[in-house]
Design a binder for these strands. Structure first.
Lengths: 140, 140
DNA sequence: AGAAATTTGTCCGTATGTATC
DNA sequence: AGATACATACGGACAAATTTC
């Protein structure tokens, strides 16, 4: 229960341990780490400390966490894709108004809106996505 | 790692900074502030100091905190503006990537994206809504 | 389709030790 | 000595996303 704080903090020791397991393959790439609750038992640490340890690995991009799912080991390991495209790709479609858009346009949630989406590419990678919403029938 | 404390206490400086972000709209009214853990990183302050800063804003009713959910900005503030608003209202905030945006940006669903929303007004009515998405950290 | 269990996200309150004004 | 702040750690509770039954 104390807070040693001498030497190395616990969360760093735990992060170190988990990193080894991931890099050694003991935790397979793409697989889920044990749940936080399981790690609290395994390391006899509080959940906050476990989460701090995982945060270290997340900063290193060694793991990726998804809400309600878990924490994946070695999530992103693929090379660059060439796939060059035009500078801007434009698509237009009809979508349902989310609550905020509904309030702005003074229509009901779920009402039809026109969405024009422009995807701008910079060096082959997506630089920004622009979505323009307007009411059906509005001039443009 | 000094503890300057020259002039104003740290928590007041942080509160001041957050207040500016809220009042300027950089943190959209009704949206969530970054989590305490995120603010500790952003301001390089301890959690206790962050909580103290938020407590200041809470006392001012500038924010409202809900247990387990987060801290909301400007729970209710829409006093009369001094004059008519501009033709374009711009707000910026952090949102979670929907499946399509996630695919475009090559991030995971739910990952943080920056959304800049421009609401263009025509004769006081909303003419169009433009939402621009980009990766956090990207220049703009 | 719906309820329950699982899991992560967040906040709350508290505590200990250290360091700097 | 006292005030301020940092870093770490605990345990609890509620919220939200996902999966499972």
């Amino acid at each position: 229960m104390p807070t040693p704080h001498h030497g190395q903090p616990r969360y760093r020791v735990i992060a170190e341990d988990l990193r080894r397991q991931i890099e050694s393959g003991a935790i397979a790439p793409g697989s889920l780490l044990p749940a936080e609750s399981a790690l609290t038992a395994e390391f006899r640490a509080s959940r906050g400390t476990i989460r701090q340890a995982i945060a270290v690995l997340r900063d290193e991009r060694l793991v990726a966490t998804e809400h309600g799912r878990g924490t994946y080991a070695n999530p992103y390991r693929y090379k660059d894709g060439p796939a060059d495209g035009p500078d801007v790709e434009t698509t237009e479609r009809q979508v349902a108004a989310d609550p905020e858009l509904a309030a702005l346009f003074a229509v009901e949630v779920g009402a039809a809106l026109i969405e024009q989406q422009n995807v701008t590419l910079m060096n082959g990678a997506v630089g920004a996505v622009v979505r323009i919403y307007r009411l059906p029938g509005a001039m443009h």
